[in-house]
């Protein structure tokens, strides 16, 4: 029996290890190695930090990197601010059937691809789009207005695209907060704000953290939304990675960019977990 259990363990470990080692670990190590390579001749390479130097010395690269990071953080905050009241409504105010109906309604848009959602916003925001026409019809503007191809449009797209990933964890954690605890807060003389600040938000912290991590990740790594909704000046870091890999065929620099993106996202995820005393197993698993 003992050896049988051992065999079972090995058999179950094999696919897990194959997956994690061949598709996650080695490719990332290899990407890092490629990023340390400098091309000195045809098929000749040497190890150097040249690609990272290029990244830090070329203002466009560094600037795009920082801009992407700041806008992703902003998108995460906006998503949280919009989603929290809605999640609270679903979890604590709505009852019975209407609660599950509202929750389901939140999920619906995310059963269709991000491309379709982005396309919807393009139809709404573009010069010949619905909103522009509506404004003209209402007499608020005299000619067509272009609302697409700027940072605000990107922000709308990012927030819309990641809304679900904030609402679901928030609703789940808020549902686990008993009504009696909130009532007790009021009985002890709490006001709306103090109950919110001292009871509801601390209780929802795990949901806020896991939602924020996912939304931040999705925004940072997004390619579609910035490409379709952004203009010429609103370059996203993933677009740089794409162009180095596919258009310029400079894999060394592209790999360095990829590694910087990975580093940034890992740092921020780690920082958020540390700051709130959460662990990855508890927020994701």
């Amino acid at each position: 029996m003992k050896s049988g259990a051992r065999l079972g363990l090995m058999l179950l470990l094999a696919p897990l290890l194959l997956w994690l080692i061949l598709l996650i670990l080695i490719p990332h190590v290899d990407m890092f190695l490629v990023s340390l390579r400098e091309r000195v001749g045809v098929g000749e390479y040497r190890i150097s930090l040249a690609n990272y130097l290029t990244f830090f010395q070329e203002p466009l690269y560094l600037w795009t990197f920082l801009r992407t990071a700041v806008m992703s953080i902003l998108a995460t905050l906006i998503t949280l601010l919009i989603a929290f009241p809605v999640s609270y409504f679903i979890a604590k105010i709505a009852r019975g059937r209407s609660r599950s109906a509202l929750f389901l309604l939140c999920l619906v848009p995310f059963w269709v691809s991000e491309l379709v959602r982005t396309f919807g916003w393009m139809i709404l925001l573009r010069e010949t789009g619905i909103i522009s026409n509506l404004l003209q019809w209402a007499g608020l503007v005299s000619g067509p207005v272009e609302m697409l191809y700027n940072d605000a449009a990107i922000m709308v797209g990012l927030v819309y695209t990641s809304m679900l990933f904030m609402v679901v964890p928030l609703v789940t954690t808020l549902e686990s907060l008993p009504d009696e605890v909130i009532e007790a807060g009021y009985d002890l003389g709490g006001t709306n704000t103090s109950v919110m600040r001292e009871i509801v938000i601390p209780h929802a912290a795990p949901g806020i953290v896991s939602g924020s991590i996912v939304v931040f990740m999705l925004s940072l790594g997004n390619y579609l939304t910035p490409t379709m909704l952004g203009g010429k000046d609103s370059l996203w870091f993933t677009e740089l990675i794409y162009s180095q890999f596919i258009v310029r065929f400079n894999w060394e620099l592209g790999a360095a960019f990829g590694f910087m993106l990975l580093l940034l996202s890992s740092l921020i995820v780690w920082g958020m977990l540390r700051l709130t005393g959460q662990t990855l197993e508890r927020t994701m698993g």
Binding site: I24, P27, H28, D30, M31, I213, M217, L220, G221, Y223, T238, I241, Y242, F245, G254, A255, G258, L261, L262, S265, S266, V269, L280, M284
Partner: peptide
């Protein structure tokens, strides 16, 4: 928590 594009390029 790895951006999809990084998974792709690696």
């Amino acid at each position: 928590v790895v951006p999809g594009i990084v998974l792709g390029i690696s």
